[in-house]
Amino acid sequence: MNQNLYHYILTIADTNLILGQRLGELCGHGPSLETDIALTNISLDLIGQTRSYFQYAASLFDEEKTEDDIAFLRKEREYRNVLLVEQPNTHFGYVMARQFLFDVFHLMFLRELEISKDETLAAIAKKGIKEASYHRRFSSDWIKRLGDGTEESHTKIQEAVNNLWRYTNELFQMTEADVAMVTEGVGVDLEALKEPYYEAVSEVLKEATLEVPERKYFQKGGKEGIHTEHMGYLLSDLQYMQRAFPDMKW
């Protein structure tokens, strides 16, 4: 099996899965019916994309494997999602800041993945671009509303952006699998996305009358399976059924 390709897919898919899972926690608890529907919809898009990636990943194995084996039956240290997406739904400001900081990256990433030499990944990316464009528009609009809304919302969203900022740099960290996949013309050169990402993010933050955090210290580890303390609880929920009732069909 092509280990690099497998690991490459895992990072992308796990990031989608974990964010989809986080958003799924909010269903029925949003500040309005409209935001509830939109966030559920984004969660659904992300889980849908996750399934496509994992189905592809499962096909790389010689033995029989399913999308669910990969999604549910790994240990915490084997999940390769970025730390940003596992951060909790502290309040709506955190939900939107996390979403926005991811969406700007996600859309740029998919636009590059669309021209991958790997036809399956290119096809998944192509389908995902439409969804990710909507996500980016939705979260950007909310950053502006909250930033340029009331004094309270301004303070809250600024605090969320400041606290989540330390997880942004990891989005561009190149793992061994990334380097190998870029060499093969399959993967996306993440470092090349870094500057345009911070430019795009800053533009929206400024329009939202928010300050762009100046920070030199960042967190990383997710891509090597070293997660924040929040991850274990998230996985306990995610894996509960598969762990409590192993080897059954659902």
Binding site: Q21, G24, E25, C27, G28, L33, D36, I37, T40, N41, S43, L44, I47, G48, T50, R51, F54, E67, D68, A71, F72, D237, L238, Y240, M241, Q242, F245, M248, W250
Partner: peptide, 22 residues
């Protein structure tokens, strides 16, 4: 939703609850 036993069931349940909101 967070504990659905498979990805297919998770997606279907999300879609269902979203329909209800609609």
């Amino acid at each position: 939703i967070t504990r659905a036993p498979s990805l297919r069931r998770k997606a279907a349940l999300l879609a269902k609850v979203q329909d209800e909101a609609g």
